[in-house]
Design a protein around this nucleic acid. Structure first.
Lengths: 242, 242
DNA sequence: ACCCCTTTCTGTCATGCTGACAAAAAGCTA
DNA sequence: TAGCTTTTTGTCAGCATGACAGAAAGGGGT
């Protein structure tokens, strides 16, 4: 650092995308089959290098998403979820990756783009359990992203974004159950979301499909931050035991 | 992306450090006076470029900390707190910065290192209020770091790390008050931390300095995650109003 | 029409946490 | 001993929660 002629070493920057959605009542993550080396043929998160030196990170993230999986994600709000810069994580050299997270309602089946041989949804538990091997350190990135989504569900009104514009309380409950991976009591859940101010507002009259009593319809309220938060019960047993 | 001869654009990577401590019952952040252009003479967070292409991010963070402010921070646990990569944030070119956060007990007055003309503690409210101008987008980084510290105080036993190895409940309360920036009721706080399992454990007999009834002494418990969490009262008014 | 089944919705009840506050306990000082 | 400060122990009402009972509102089958 005392040498005037020293120049900082450049690194290569990538963005990786953890796109979560709900399909068949399960939390699923968007994965692509890599069409190029390294890890050609393996599953990985969509993502890639910055295109030009002036490209914004978030712009690059959106671009990669539309390139690798042709999803209409204009409205998708990407949120930073971590940086992964360990040397050796990419055989191509020193690559630092910024991970972005998005959580969205039932998205359609993606269409593989230019860089990806294939793109499809996979249940996150297959990734977390290790049944599904991912390229690079992408499993770790998925883990971190899912944990962040779980926490976000507690403190923000994000869960409504998983549903359509109009939904029933039971549908909202299924979102929580899928993301948290635990069952909830319908009656207490009903009471809780009703009295959490600004979370959901009534939308039109009742009536829904199939069997059982017709459910009332709701839409997302205007508040972002939930107070009091939705607490997931399992958190209690998380105290680190000596 | 369809051009085989295309190579990804390199970027320069820096680490920036948000080191928070408690001095004189106020939350303070470590700042250095820049000794080189750009922003020479301005206050900024300690930090700098990766030294060589194989340097780990966290290693670089520790190195910069010891270079710019000669603190003995072997035990300091740095935690990632964000990436700042907006084009134009640094006049030297495309510079992406990874911010690290550390929270620590009363640290000594720092000693300016090689790159910094000076290094010292500054109250965070001076930074947040805008009274103190920082170089680059460092004010934003401090804001994010402080908010993260506030949240961490709610859910983790971090607050004990601000105190010495042995402390009184009142001292612990002062930590919360300083970081959250609000007053708390001593009696309710006393009750709360006592029954939060694994947060604090008794350490030796009572007795302390100055006036008033001697306080009992405690040390940090073994648990990391607080359940139930410490909730800061102001959070209730945080609902985003339409 | 009637019964059964499913799902949604409304209550109830005991428990435990919280905020607000009273008051006792334990020192020090004058 | 009186007065002051700070810590510690209670008290009390209100609110949220978990567990669960049971009513309401449909549909399908006979």
């Amino acid at each position: 650092m005392t040498d005037d002629r020293w120049v900082p070493p450049p690194v290569l920057l990538t963005v990786d995308l953890v796109i979560l959605t709900l399909r068949e009542s399960r939390l699923q993550v968007l994965l692509v089959e890599r069409g190029v080396e390294p890890y050609k043929g393996d599953l990985a998160l969509p993502g890639g290098f910055l295109q030009h030196p002036e490209e914004d990170l978030i712009t690059a993230a959106h671009r990669e998403l539309s390139e690798e999986a042709d999803l209409d994600v204009e409205t998708l709000r990407l949120e930073q979820s971590g940086v992964y810069g360990e040397p050796g994580r990419d055989p191509r050299g020193r690559v630092v990756s910024v991970a972005y997270l998005a959580i969205a309602p039932r998205l359609p089946e993606p269409i593989a783009g230019t860089d990806a041989a294939d793109a499809r949804w996979q249940p996150v538990d297959h990734v977390l359990s290790g049944d599904l091997k991912l390229a690079f350190d992408h499993r770790r990135i998925v883990e971190d992203g899912v944990e962040r989504a779980r926490v976000k569900l507690e403190h923000s009104a994000l869960a409504t974004a998983f549903c359509g514009p109009i939904f029933t309380i039971t549908e909202l409950q299924e979102v929580y159950e899928a993301v948290w991976g635990i069952p909830l009591d319908p009656r207490n859940f009903y009471r809780k979301v009703q009295k959490t101010d600004g979370f959901i507002v009534p939308a039109g009259s009742a009536r829904k499909s199939a069997t059982g009593r017709p459910a009332r319809l709701f839409k997302a309220g205007q508040c972002e931050v939930l107070y009091p938060p939705m607490v997931r019960p399992s958190e209690s047993s998380n105290t680190k035991e000596q």
